[in-house]
């Protein structure tokens, strides 16, 4: 995915504005998601729509901006739609998947779908680890097989969506400049 990451943001003002818009977009995705039932037999599995912003962000924006957008999104949507505990779960999942997707975004032999699948899987792994720490029980590892496959499936869906959206986002960014 290592496309040239020339800053599409121009002046600092534009950069802040664009990042703010993307935080808002990611938050709307987080909120929309609460209406989409996605039952995998294990509670709490989500589609990961907000990851669309991270995936496409990593293609067009400096990684720092994407990380900040992601962190602010997690903080705000946990406060608005979740609770203190959901903040920790989201943070663990979000940071782990961001790290992996950032590393993969610098490679040419991995597409958005591969990035997204890895992100989805690691997001779930991060959440299981957090849950295991919360209840201090390693037995939660029993949920890993289902969660790994779930992350793969949701990641593939989001990655495909991101791929479809990419040309449009590219166009929109050009008009933003």
């Amino acid at each position: 995915m290592a496309t040239s990451r020339k800053s599409p943001t121009g002046t600092p003002g534009r950069r802040v504005a664009l990042d703010g818009i993307l935080v808002a977009l990611a938050m709307i995705f987080s909120y929309m998601e609460t209406f989409i039932p996605f039952n995998f037999g294990v509670p709490g599995i989500k589609l990961g729509l907000a990851n669309l912003v991270v995936l496409l962000g990593l293609t067009f924006l400096p990684a720092v901006d994407v990380l900040l957008i992601s962190l602010v999104r997690i903080l705000l949507s946990s406060l608005l739609f979740g609770n203190v505990m959901s903040l920790w779960y989201s943070l663990a999942g979000g940071l782990l998947s961001f790290a992996a997707m950032y590393l993969l975004s610098r490679r040419d032999d991995i597409s958005l779908i591969g990035m997204s699948m890895t992100g989805g899987v690691l997001h779930n792994v991060g959440q299981v680890i957090t849950a295991a720490i919360v209840v201090r029980t390693l037995q939660l590892a029993g949920y890993l097989p289902v969660l790994l496959v779930a992350g793969l499936v949701t990641g593939a869906i989001i990655g495909t969506l991101a791929k479809l959206l990419m040309p449009r986002v590219q166009k929109a960014l050009q008009s933003f400049q």
Binding site: G114, G151, A156
Partner: peptide, 12 residues
């Protein structure tokens, strides 16, 4: 999807 993508999926 690229070859390595399938590799990731298969590994998981």
């Amino acid at each position: 999807m690229k070859k390595k993508d399938f590799l990731i999926a298969a590994a998981v």
